[in-house]
């Protein structure tokens, strides 16, 4: 499968934002990610699909080194963002995560006000010089996350008081307030109802103009709706990656075919 990915990548023309080569992940004795090589493009949405436990979330968490927080987890291979190896000894994961933001499966607003939730990132990264700038960042981010109109009158109330969909959009606003270059989303709609899901999907589509977005999803339809490129994972291996249209209309692997037609999942 390794030779495959090189060929596939060669076929893409746009510049890669992130390149991963021969990535292996171990959880203690378990080999969770096996030799995955993948390119992720700038200003595009890449979807990771595959049956549960296939390693797509694990791989996503490697991209901003969230796996560092798990003590038994070990990562090998190379992941570069704009040519810089993120597993280089000199890299501070904190700086990396400012560049590669993340939105999680379950909305996890901080026990703070809506305003403070969004202002958190800019504050710790020292992005603003004064309160006016911070207000500006908060407002812009909430607007980008399509939440501004709903919360502008109650910025001081706790973020935990919002509905599930609003909370997830708050988390997206929080992530984009730090001005990341890449946005990782780990099944961002799995805890949301269909209406909220639609809102978030629409939002993802719009975010594409500014960020490189990687989304892990269980839903085939979602991948088809929001992504330009789709990567299929199975049992810790990358089956194939291609333009979304190609994957869904003319996959080159039988496993992908079976998965997208619902034979297993």
């Amino acid at each position: 499968m390794n030779d495959m990915s090189t060929a596939e990548i060669a076929a893409t023309t746009a510049p890669a934002k992130i390149t991963a080569r021969n990535v292996q992940v171990y959880y203690g004795a378990t080999h969770a990610i096996k030799n995955v090589s993948v390119d992720i493009l700038d200003k595009a949405v890449t979807a990771f699909i595959g049956p549960s436990g296939c390693g797509k979330s694990t791989f996503l968490r490697c991209i901003n080194r969230m796996n560092d927080t798990i003590s038994v987890c070990r990562v090998e291979g190379k992941i570069e963002i704009e040519g810089e190896d993120i597993y280089d000894r000199r890299v501070d994961p904190v700086q990396l995560r400012a560049k590669v933001g993340m939105v999680f499966q379950k909305p996890n607003p901080f026990p703070k006000s809506i305003y403070d939730n969004v202002a958190y990132g800019p504050k710790i990264h020292g992005l603003t010089r004064n309160k006016a700038e911070l207000d500006e960042v908060v407002e812009t981010s909430l607007k980008k996350a399509a939440l501004w109109n709903e919360v502008k009158d109650r910025l001081a109330s706790p973020g935990t008081g919002l509905s599930g969909g609003q909370q997830q959009r708050l988390c997206i606003a929080r992530a984009i307030a730090t001005h990341p270059e890449v946005l990782l989303m780990d099944e961002p709609c799995s805890a949301l109802d269909p209406i909220a899901t639609a809102q978030v999907e629409e939002l993802i589509d719009e975010l594409r103009s500014q960020f490189s977005v990687v989304i892990v999803t269980h839903s085939m339809q979602q991948a088809a709706r929001v992504s330009q490129r789709t990567a299929m994972f199975h049992l810790g291996e990358l089956v194939e990656i291609d333009a979304t249209e190609t994957i869904f209309t003319n996959p080159s692997h039988k496993k992908t075919q079976d998965y997208i037609t619902g034979r297993y999942g």
């Binding site: 995560r97 560049k99 999680f104 958190y120 929080r174 730090t178």
Partner: peptide, 15 residues
């Protein structure tokens, strides 16, 4: 305190 809360903060690049 749920781990997701810590992940949210670490994911934003907090130390």
């Amino acid at each position: 305190v749920p781990q997701s809360m810590r992940d949210g903060s670490l994911g934003l690049g907090a130390t």
